[in-house]
Simulated assay, not measured.
Amino acid sequence: MTEFVATTPGVFPLPDWAKDRLGSLKGHQKEDLVDGSEGTDVTDVYEEARATVADWQATAGLDRTVEGQLRWDDMLAHPLCVHDGVETRGIVRYYDNNNFYREPVVTGELAFDGDLADDLDALAALETDTPLQAVVPGPYSLADLATDEFYEDDAEFRDAITNFLAGEVRAFPDVETVFLLEPSLVVNPPEDGADERASDAIDRVAEATDADVVVQTYWGALEEKVHAHLLDANVDAVGYDFVTNHEDNLYNINEYGTTEDIALGLADGQNTLVEEPETIAERAAWVDEQTPSADFETMYMTTNTELFYLPVSRCVEKLEALAAGAARANEEVDA
């Protein structure tokens, strides 16, 4: 019997009141928020905002609670942008949209940092009623978003990124689930040989935790070889963007198989139109019906992308729709 789990890929929009308070701090600069040198006034705002987004998720009825990644002004590049061995330089377009991040240029050794674990520790201290979920950039995407001026060898650089992320994940408190976000596998797919190495890197990061690991891909469908190699990684679930490209994702699943659990991007993380819970439940049922050879133990029902693109009100409504959609799907299974 399939269990439907409502969750998100995280990276939420910062609450409006938090933006206002941060903007009013004397001498405040945007880069101060993300380079690890925040003052007490700034960290207090983030602590309050973290509790706020945890409450959003609890009130909506989600089955996992993410930290919200509210400090991630540089989106998935954040873990490098706050690292001592990295310089942040010019503004770079974040994939093919109107969002931008500071280019992280690796100029020194990528030693352990602990920034991600610190945020998760703060979330754990809130003692939420639902299991915790960590959100981490996947090793292929993080390397794709960065520039190397230290290792000077592509394979060595990607290996260093992988080791860095594995060390960060190893320091996490107890979490139920880890979402590795890997949009670059779709947007800038690895070539022959590199696709196998990307899978190996994901496998190594996944080995750093006992939690269930979900590799969430989005903005389209994986190329066939990339998908096949990804299935070689020892992960619990692969995520598919059924908002952007349901046909090719369905083909990959039926042609090459997939993991025993699966994550489905069923609500649009970039569009302010809020899906009805019935629509979300129907989309999950449709995927289940269209994959007759699969017998999924868990279906994670999520937005297809991070949520920072949305206004706060729409973000909250998406959370409510996901939770209600998963509840409806579970009721239909139990009926």
Rank of each mutant, 00 (worst) to 15 (best):
P13H: 06
K225G: 00
D153C: 09
P104S: 10
P15E: 10
K26R: 13
I202V: 14
D119A: 14
E260D: 12
E67V: 12
G239A: 08
G257V: 09
I161V: 14
L70P: 05
A326D: 06
G138H: 11
A335G: 15
M1Y: 06
L322Q: 02
V82N: 01
D153F: 01
V226R: 02
L307C: 09
V11S: 12
A263N: 06
A49H: 06
T259F: 00
T43G: 02
Y218T: 12
S184A: 15
L22S: 06
V106C: 09
E87T: 07
K26W: 09
F164M: 01
L123F: 04
L310W: 03
G220E: 00
P183M: 10
Q270E: 13
A166I: 01
N271P: 02
D334V: 10
G108I: 08
G23L: 13
D35K: 06
V34P: 00
D63E: 12
Y218C: 07
L322E: 04
R64E: 15
G239H: 05
E275L: 05
D55F: 05
E182M: 05
N330K: 03
A60C: 12
V287E: 06
L185T: 04
G36Q: 10
L25S: 06
R204L: 11
S293P: 00
V86Y: 12
L142A: 05
T40N: 06
D148V: 09
P183H: 09
K19E: 15
E282M: 05
A122L: 15
K225R: 11
L266F: 12
A60Q: 11
N304C: 11
G108F: 10
A143V: 05
P189N: 09
E224P: 09
A281S: 14
E289R: 14
C81M: 06
D334E: 15
G90M: 07
L185Y: 00
F296P: 00
V214G: 04
L132W: 01
E320T: 14
E332N: 11
R50I: 08
D210G: 13
M299S: 05
L185V: 03
A281P: 04
V82R: 04
V186P: 02
C315Q: 10
I161G: 01
M75D: 08
D200Q: 10
T279K: 12
A60I: 13
T2P: 15
R89T: 15
R204Y: 03
D20H: 08
L165N: 01
